[in-house]
């Protein structure tokens, strides 16, 4: 039923005049044109912020205790690395809806950084650079390859991530050449694996690869 708002000289079916909000009718009816909106509870964001807050709380508290009690030995670094890694794992890997490829790459990078911090804090015998990081990169490249082989339809989506993994694969060798790292075989093996992945990508998907490169680099 139409009501007339004398104040605005317009007709409306709504209980209140949409223009001046005056009450025109007592009848509570459905709005014919619009739904009542559900307010989306942004739980995910809240959870992420909570995780971040707990992390900041933990790091700052341990930093304070460390500095007040034993400033010569910086043991809070043992807290810092794992906590930062934990934040990333919960907030990005579990709670975000990012692409699996990007989750894998971020895991590799953050895990490497955390292990490097732990390594450095514990007297820097460089076990992280020598063995763990090359191994991690190889494992992640293998993991992404497996995903792609299981879902060949999704291959195109993963090209960017695969390429990033291949580039990361050469990182350990660069570390070796710049004499940061002194054990050659894990780095060399990783580089070879990355190279093989690259050759595989080119051989088995010539056209898709080329097409993808054209798209991604068009200007």
């Amino acid at each position: 039923m139409q009501h007339y708002c004398k104040n605005c000289s317009v007709y409306t079916k709504q209980k209140y005049c949409p223009l001046c909000k005056r009450k025109l009718s007592d009848k509570t009816g459905d709005n014919e044109y619009y739904p009542v909106y559900e307010t989306k509870v942004k739980r995910r964001r809240f959870a992420q912020r909570l995780v971040l807050f707990i992390a900041i709380f933990g790091i700052s508290t341990s930093l304070l205790i460390n500095l007040l009690t034993n400033p010569e030995r910086l043991w809070f670094l043992y807290v810092l690395g794992p906590v930062l890694y934990g934040v990333l794992t919960i907030n990005h890997t579990f709670l975000s809806r990012a692409h699996t490829g990007s989750k894998v790459i971020l895991q590799v990078i953050s895990l490497s950084v955390m292990l490097f911090i732990l390594d450095a804090a514990s007297g820097s015998s460089k076990w992280s650079i020598h063995y763990v990081i090359p191994f991690l990169v190889t494992l992640a490249t293998f993991f992404v390859t497996m995903i792609v082989l299981r879902k060949p339809m999704k291959w195109r989506e993963y090209i960017g991530y695969m390429s990033t993994m291949v580039i990361l694969g050469f990182l350990p060798v660069i570390l070796f050449l710049s004499s940061w790292s002194t054990v050659l075989w894990p780095s060399a093996a990783t580089a070879l694996y990355a190279l093989l992945t690259l050759i595989g990508m080119i051989l088995f998907s010539e056209k898709t690869m080329k097409n993808e490169i054209v798209r991604r680099f068009h200007f």
Binding site: V10, Y11, P18
Partner: peptide, 19 residues
């Protein structure tokens, strides 16, 4: 809308998503 309906004597039906 007021001016449009009052000055020019137009019949206007208004509706909104303002609940």
């Amino acid at each position: 809308f007021r001016e449009l309906s009052k000055t020019f004597n137009l019949e206007i039906e208004v509706y909104s998503n303002d609940s």
